[in-house]
Amino acid sequence: MVLFNYILMCLIFGTTFLSIKVGVDAGAPPFFSAGIRFLMAGSILFLWMVSRGKAKFSLLLRKEMLLTGTGLTFATFAALYWSEQYLSSGIAAVLSATGPLMVLLLQSCINRQKLSVSSLVGCLTGFSGVVLLLLPGILGTSFSKLWIIGCIAILLSELFYSAGAVYSSRVIQRFQGISPIALNAAQMMYGGAMLLFLSLFTEKVHMKSILTTSAILSLLYLIIAGSMVAHTIFYWLVAKTNPVFPATWLYISPLIALCLGAVLYHEPITLLSVIGGIIIIIGTIMVNINNLKHLIGRRTKESNL
């Protein structure tokens, strides 16, 4: 059951980037689409947790939910949705995989700790992969400033994601009596509300573009599968295994997204981009090599008992 849910989670997370691209290309305003997605998904999950007695409405009044929602949802997905107007879903997914690298760098700065050799090499490897990934767009004959800005926006958004991730780990410890699913739902609600507020001042929402078949199916998939099912499976896996194992989806899903975008949506892909994407994933694995060794050792020990 654990393996099945893990594979399902990786597949869902790997398809969300293409689903975002489909919705944006259909004409759905990016900030509005993202806001509706997270506000609705967060509200449904939160009400479900309240009905089960695992959360209280007073949780929504805590500033921690606002701050976490700002980093993990608002800043991260505002940039991702906007950028996918100009980037392929595969490139967006691979660039998003730099999040763990930035989490490590931020943690080392906060704790004033020197990076281990494997972590330092992993960071350098990962960011060299970013350079390779960007080279085809920079050197190509159809150079686009918006393409470059989109790439930079996603990389900057991962800085906000890393800040939100580091802060949320402390929030979870602070609210140990509350389910992580409820905490995640609350921050999604705040992030979604902020995205809608941003849309109010920056976008013109036309009902015709929102009510197209592609836009509706994209939104429903992202709400139900991307934000509710996948995240619930993630926290279920955390409870059944440990925090490290479920997070390894970050090594698999970006490559799934890259392949799906090329095969199903005919997105342009170059050999250099593929190599850059693989190098980014390798760098991310190297950064987390100690945690992965601990996980493998623990699983081996458990299987021998």
Rank of each mutant, 00 (worst) to 15 (best):
C259W: 14
T16K: 00
F197E: 00
A186T: 08
N291R: 13
A28N: 05
N242G: 02
L132I: 09
G35D: 00
S218V: 12
P180G: 07
I280S: 04
T70W: 14
I296L: 14
K145M: 13
L120A: 14
Y251V: 08
F38G: 00
G126D: 08
L146H: 09
L124Q: 04
N184L: 08
E84A: 02
M188Y: 12
V131Q: 07
I280M: 10
F160H: 02
M49G: 03
I148Y: 10
L260S: 13
K21D: 01
F143C: 04
T202Q: 06
I91L: 14
G192S: 05
L39V: 01
G27S: 05
G276W: 15
G99W: 09
T76N: 14
G150R: 09
A262W: 15
G192Y: 02
S108R: 14
F234D: 10
Q187S: 08
L66V: 15
I256H: 11
C151M: 10
F13P: 00
W236P: 00
L47R: 10
V205P: 03
H266T: 01
L196M: 04
R298A: 09
A163G: 11
V229W: 10
G14F: 13
Q173D: 08
G191Y: 11
I224T: 11
K204R: 09
I138T: 04
G71H: 12
W48G: 04
T202K: 08
S168F: 15
G90W: 01
I280W: 00
S43E: 12
L200A: 13
F57A: 06
L222G: 02
L59T: 05
L159P: 00
A92Q: 01
V131N: 05
G277N: 11
Y221D: 05
Y6W: 13
A185M: 08
K301R: 14
I280D: 02
G14R: 13
I269M: 13
A93H: 01
V130E: 09
I289P: 01
F4A: 14
T73G: 06
I279A: 03
Y265M: 13
M286Y: 05
H266F: 03
T98P: 07
T76M: 12
T202W: 05
